[in-house]
Computed example of a mutant assay.
Amino acid sequence: MTQEIRICLDVDDIERAIAFYTQGFGLRLGRRLQDDWAELLGASAPIDLLVEPAGSAATQVGPARQRSYERHWTPVHLDFVVADLDARVAALVALGARLERPIQQRRWGRMANLSDPFGHGFDLLEMQGRGYDEIIAGGK
């Protein structure tokens, strides 16, 4: 069974979010579904930007949690594979991203950990050699 996946990001400023993701990642605006909902295309899955005010309830289940657009942690993040890591980091930082630690060299390539202007963490990956296959013992 094939499933479609969509990525949804809560933001507090739709115009700033559209500018960040279109200018920083080369995505394009697909549709403005409402004043508070924009669909971005050009990645392997559509990204929906959804306006939700800071301080609003993030869930109705479990302990009360409120949305915050300061840096927050979640076990889910986005990885973007890029060709020129240094140039992309510089462009994203100029658009309001924060580089959270120095660029790291890994066996499979290089990685930068960043957060967007809305507090969401994401990584940039620059594959080198055989990419992830470099970490497979005896991989070909």
Score class of each variant (00 low, 15 high):
residue 1 M to A: 15
residue 4 E to D: 07
residue 78 L to T: 08
residue 68 S to N: 06
residue 121 G to D: 08
residue 70 E to A: 15
residue 1 M to S: 15
residue 8 C to L: 13
residue 77 H to N: 13
residue 60 Q to C: 08
residue 60 Q to I: 08
residue 14 I to H: 03
residue 67 R to C: 01
residue 71 R to V: 14
residue 132 Y to H: 09
residue 98 R to I: 12
residue 92 L to F: 10
residue 135 I to M: 12
residue 52 E to V: 15
residue 60 Q to L: 13
residue 120 H to T: 12
residue 2 T to Q: 13
residue 132 Y to P: 04
residue 77 H to V: 04
residue 75 P to G: 13
residue 104 Q to Y: 00
residue 28 R to S: 15
residue 136 I to H: 08
residue 100 E to W: 01
residue 61 V to S: 13
residue 104 Q to R: 14
residue 119 G to Q: 03
residue 82 V to S: 06
residue 66 Q to W: 03
residue 83 A to M: 04
residue 103 I to L: 09
residue 47 I to V: 14
residue 139 G to L: 05
residue 103 I to Y: 05
residue 114 L to M: 12
residue 89 V to D: 00
residue 135 I to D: 08
residue 137 A to N: 02
residue 135 I to V: 15
residue 106 R to T: 11
residue 127 M to K: 09
residue 27 L to N: 05
residue 126 E to T: 02
residue 74 T to V: 12
residue 13 D to H: 07
residue 103 I to P: 05
residue 99 L to K: 09
residue 136 I to Y: 10
residue 133 D to C: 03
residue 87 A to L: 06
residue 136 I to S: 03
residue 70 E to C: 09
residue 37 W to N: 06
residue 56 S to D: 03
residue 37 W to F: 15
residue 19 A to P: 00
residue 85 L to P: 06
residue 36 D to A: 10
residue 119 G to P: 02
residue 135 I to L: 10
residue 9 L to W: 01
residue 50 L to S: 05
residue 127 M to Y: 08
residue 7 I to R: 01
residue 14 I to K: 04
residue 21 Y to P: 01
residue 70 E to I: 02
residue 87 A to P: 01
residue 5 I to F: 14
